[in-house]
Design a protein around this nucleic acid. Sequence first.
DNA 1: ACCTGAACACCGTTCAAGT
DNA 2: ACCTGAACACCGTTCAAGT
Lengths: 194, 194
Amino acid sequence: MSPAPARTSSTEIIAAGRELLEAGGLGSVTMQAVAAQVGVRAPSLYKRFPSRDALIAAITTATLEDLGELLAPLSHDPDASAGLRELALAYRAFAWANPHAFELLYMNLPLDSRPSVEDTARATAPVLTLAERLVGPERALEAARLITAFANGFISMELAGTFRLGGDVERSYRYGVDVLVEALVNERGAKRSR
Amino acid sequence: MSPAPARTSSTEIIAAGRELLEAGGLGSVTMQAVAAQVGVRAPSLYKRFPSRDALIAAITTATLEDLGELLAPLSHDPDASAGLRELALAYRAFAWANPHAFELLYMNLPLDSRPSVEDTARATAPVLTLAERLVGPERALEAARLITAFANGFISMELAGTFRLGGDVERSYRYGVDVLVEALVNERGAKRSR
DNA sequence: ACCTGAACACCGTTCAAGT
DNA sequence: ACCTGAACACCGTTCAAGT
C-alpha cells in the first residue's frame, strides 16, 4: 500500500562506484557490485541511472569536479610561470591519488560515458587562464594544449607502466614541465622562427 | 582416426582480431567474433592463445612491430631535428590510420595483455636515437620521454575527442612539436638555468 | 591433434509482480 | 514509488566427446 521509500540515492551510488573503481579498476564497477555496496539489487540502480555507461559518466563528472576544485586556486598565482609548474605537479599528484579515476578522464569511452563539454571546460579552465597570462590570448589555446598533452601523456604512460627504461621518472616529469614552461615564456611576443 | 588438420593459424587469428578491433573497437574483439571470422568455434582459439588477454597482447605486439618498421627509417635522417619532427608526424599519421590499435599501445591493460619490454623498446628505439643525437646521451632519455609523452597525450586526447574548444588541432600539434624540438636544441650543451 | 557442443559463472538489462 | 526475482542475450572459459 504505502509507496516504498528510497533505500539509496544517486550520490550514494556514485560514491560506491568511485570506491569500487579505485579499489579494483573499471572492470570491477559492475552494476551488481555497486548495488551490493549500497544495499540494493542491480535492477534498482536503473531507477537513477539509465545504464552502466551513464553511471560511469557520473563518476567521471564527480572526479572532474574534484580536480577543478584542486586546480582552481593555483590559477591565481601572481607568477604565471610558477603557477603553471605548480599546477602540473598538482595534476600529477591528483592522478597518483586517484589513478583509476584519472584514467577515466582521458579514456576513449562511449559517448554516453563522457562528461559534458561544460564540466570538462570548467575543470581545465585554470590551465587556460595561466597559459593566457603566460603567452597572451592568441597562443593561449595552443599553449594550454601543449602542456595538457604533455602532462596527460606522461602521467598516463607512467600509470600504464610504459616507462620501463629506468631513470628517475619524477625527475623526467619536472624536467619536461620546466622545458615546456621556459619554451613558452621565450615564445612570448617573439615571432615564431618557422 | 586421422588426426584433424589445423583449420586456422595464430597469424590468421591475430589478423582477424586486428580487423575486428579497427572495425568496432576493443569491445567487439570477442573470442566468438574472432573465431567466426577464421571459421572455427570460440573454444578452438584456446589451442593457440591461453586467454583473450593473450590474444590482445599478440595484437598489440603486431601493431608495435608495424609501428617500429614505419619509424625506423626516419632515425637515419642526417638532420636529427628534422628527423624528430618527421617522426612525430608519422607517429600521428599511424595513430589516425589505426586509432583503436593505437589506443591499445598506451592503454592500461592487464599485465597479460601487455607487449614485452623488448618489443616496446624496439619500436621506440628511433625516438631514443634521434633524441640522443639532438641533446647528447646524458639527456637522451628525458628528452625522448618529453616528446613521446607530448605526442601520446596529444594524440590520445584527439582520438578521445577531448579537444572540444575548436581551433586547428593539426596546427596545435605541429606547434607543439616545433616548440619542443626547438627547446631541446636550445638546451643542448647549455647548463640548465634552474 | 584439432575441433565441437554443452555447460558454468559471470555480465548488462528488462519487466512483471510484490509492498 | 521503489524494489525484487526471474528471465534474456551476451561474455570468457572449461572439458568430455567426437573425428
